[in-house]
């Protein structure tokens, strides 16, 4: 594959490692509590705070992944640190927020007491495709912009996109994520009640 600094393959793999942790959590965002949801909804709850906590956890996971990747990137010199930072910002920006919006449509129940061996609860083929797309989009944006303008502009615009989404994350969490979930609450609750995953 492409072995030049900032080669497409390197960028792709790096983005994947950056986002994988947050996305695996985010795609099943509400399913983690699926076994307890009737109780959560019947009680007093601060749903916005609950959704916000889930978002912050994804931000944290991305930041944790960023540190070792940044070290590797700096040592190997295969990619600019600015580009890495821009890709990192894209994760808690559009990626995590859009993942959460899509996850509100997932009614799969996860039984946390089940063993981990061969446990594919809540997993659907569409999620693997989604992960792939979420990696492809920032890489694609970067590549297109660096062809259209130059690499520095691409890094700036990519970072800008990430920051804009992060700045408006509260609005997304309230309007789209909590909003969509509440809108189809009954359907999700019914899915969560189904014992077989």
């Amino acid at each position: 594959m492409d072995e030049t600094p900032g080669g497409l393959f390197t960028i792709f793999i790096t983005t994947m490692f950056l986002g994988l942790g947050a996305m695996s959590y985010g795609q099943l965002i509400f399913s983690w509590e699926s076994a307890f949801f009737d109780g959560i909804m019947a009680r007093k709850n601060d749903f916005i705070a609950y959704v916000r906590a889930k978002y912050y956890l994804q931000v944290l996971v991305t930041l944790i992944a960023f540190v070792p990747i940044a070290v590797v990137v700096t040592i190997s010199g295969k990619m600019s640190l600015f580009l890495l930072a821009a890709l990192m910002l894209f994760n808690p920006g559009p990626n995590s927020l859009l993942t959460m919006v899509l996850a509100t449509l997932n009614d799969a129940r996860i039984d946390l007491d089940a063993g981990t061996f061969m446990n594919y609860q809540g997993m659907k083929g569409s999620q693997f495709v989604m992960t792939f797309l979420f990696v492809l989009v920032p890489v694609g944006i970067y590549k297109l912009l660096s062809l259209a303008a130059d690499e520095n502009t691409a890094v700036v615009i990519l970072s800008f996109l990430g920051i804009i989404f992060i700045a408006f994350s509260n609005w997304w969490l309230k309007k789209f994520i909590a909003g969509t979930f509440m809108h189809r609450k009954y359907k999700s609750l019914e899915g969560y009640r189904k014992l077989s995953a």
Partner: peptide
């Protein structure tokens, strides 16, 4: 929800 409390089934517990 402020003044209503309920227990229907084990789905109301957080079992971990």
């Amino acid at each position: 929800k402020e003044y209503t409390a309920s227990y229907l089934d084990e789905g109301f517990l957080i079992d971990y």
